[in-house]
Amino acid sequence: MKKTKQNGKVTNIFLSGVGGQGTILASNILAEVFLKAGYEVKKAEVHGMAQRGGDVTTHFRFGKKVYSPIIKYGDVDFLLSFELLESIRYINWVKPEGKIVINNQEIFPPAVNLGMAQYPKDVGKAFTKYFKNNVHMINGQEIAKNLGNMQAANVVLVGAFSNFFPEIKDEQWIDALKTLLAPKLHDLNVKAFYEGKKAL
């Protein structure tokens, strides 16, 4: 027989995007950073058919003691979204005081491609209405393109996001990047990280 440990403060990060956008790498970077920083980390993602352009979400949680791998609906502290439609889809999940980082990119789902549905307009405005200054739009694609590789947009977003955790040093993020990426990608992604950091 044992006594239950106290749950303590758990930070809930919700990542959302479209298959192929590199959300998985982003969540792996977070995992590497917070695990090394001494927290218990849990993350859950639905793979299934992500490769075929479906939506991808990752529940990411860290704290002293974490039980569920899934965040409770309405309990998201940070929404890190890689695509506009996939950000607004989860707006109800965020706590009133939650913080939001959105990549300013539209990827049309089939119904919009077919002209049968509207792509939501003014996603940024919809968020600011409820979350005021806690909404940050990042032009991840543009920044990555200027660095010479669109693929690095996910790391730009991670860089922007890193601003919320002043207790984590830049080196810790860079170390995580380097652990997870092939050496030939290090330079580009380190730059992407810093550009992202500046962008927020």
């Binding site: 479209v18 309405g74 439609l85 889809r89 707006i91 109800n92 089939p110 939501p120 919809a126």
Partner: peptide, 30 residues
């Protein structure tokens, strides 16, 4: 966690605020 809480609390469960109806957004099937 939400479904367990909602099922067991019944009427005492307070759902989070609905800001946007997700049903109104286009789905993104594979």
């Amino acid at each position: 966690p939400e479904i367990v809480e909602r099922s067991l609390k019944g009427k005492a469960y307070k759902p989070p605020k609905i800001r946007v109806k997700p049903e109104d957004l286009p789905r993104r099937p594979p």
